[in-house]
Design a protein around this nucleic acid. Structure first.
Lengths: 196, 196
DNA sequence: ATAAAAAACTAATAAGCGTTAGTTTTGTAA
DNA sequence: TTACAAAACTAACGCTTATTAGTTTTTTAT
């Protein structure tokens, strides 16, 4: 095979990583074996190593790709001219969309990052803390402008991020709740509360 | 040794399960080995089997103990004379207290239940769904009494449960946020929102 | 058609896993 | 002190793991 092949949906490496994300999401990283992954790809386990370096490398690809998507979006939002509340709303909506559109990858990044090896683990955690501190800054600005309640910014960030990250337990296409319902109602709940 | 020994903090089996919860929380169930657990207990791996039946059994103990605590509290709250909002507040506060007081166990129950074997997995999931549907009922009653916004009850339950379950990432004794701060601010945020 | 590269295969490795068997030590009750 | 049971130990079992080596097949470029 030549180097440049016309893959429709990315390279075979991409396909392996996509299948791996689905497998890791369902069974967890540590409980997923390379043989299992090879089965779903339709190949022997050893053949995977023509495309990827190691099992750990797959997890790294998934986690850092997701982290990059979120970081890029956050950077855009932060330097936008939106007010604090609009920024938060935009971010919440993005989190929900990401969870719905890239379910496996986002889930794995949120739940299996602990299985990363050093130095990737530390790197990932640093990015997470940076993300949190940016959100805190947005909220602090909103408090100073009296747009946001004077609560602990850290607690509000924790509540928002926990909410959107925990969405994995949402059963898609169930309970007559469309993605739009979910997004809108969750934004209202997290910004305006649930009391009348 | 006689059957009845005066253990200060429960039996040795309890001690093993407690250490296991801490280990499973830190490394995940599948990535924790019985030899590792034995090390932290101060014993050979095979000796553990004088007290517990299997590795799986430990996870079952942890998950169902936590589930029982939450279910019992929910039952109490439901049959109390409190209004919908007060019920929700009570439940949120209980979740946070549990997460702070029984960190390892609650974390493991929230994050490693997927590793349960059948029929325990199905049993656990059934309990979870029951818990959710009870919360939905409380919220529906609040909506009918116009105490709560007319949003999708399922979404509100998802938001609340995701928030409190995601608390694992809270760094204790950090950021000048006391447990009381956390509890109060989170209740305000989830009930009244963060806008002024 | 030929040559080269890519990607599949088979086979094997060393390490780690949960768990069991059999034995010895330890602690308690008589 | 003797007898018994609980709980520790050593050793090993059979199995699975990620990964490598070496070889063969498949695909592509010339």
């Amino acid at each position: 095979m030549a180097k440049i092949k016309a893959y429709r949906n990315g390279t075979k490496k991409d396909a392996i990583i996509r299948k791996a994300a689905a497998l890791f999401r369902k069974k967890g990283f540590a409980s997923s074996s390379m043989r299992e992954l090879a089965d779903t790809v339709g190949v022997e386990a050893s053949s995977l190593y023509n495309h990827i370096g190691s099992k750990s490398e797959i997890l790294q690809s998934i986690c850092f790709k997701v982290a990059e998507d979120f970081n890029m979006h956050l950077t855009e939002v932060e330097k936008s001219p939106l007010g604090s509340l609009e920024k938060l709303e935009t971010l919440i909506r993005f989190h929900i969309k990401m969870m719905l559109n890239q379910y496996d990858e986002v889930y794995v990044a949120n739940h299996e990052w602990k299985q990363l090896q050093e130095p990737y683990l530390e790197n990932f955690l640093t990015q997470r803390k940076l993300y949190e501190s940016t959100l805190i800054r947005i909220i602090e600005l909103g408090i100073s402008k009296a747009e946001i309640k004077n609560l602990q910014p850290y607690v509000m960030v924790l509540t928002i991020l926990s909410s959107v990250r925990g969405l994995e337990s949402w059963h898609r296409n169930k309970k007559n709740v469309t993605p739009e319902n979910l997004e809108n109602d969750m934004v209202i709940h997290l910004l305006k509360g649930l009391t009348n």
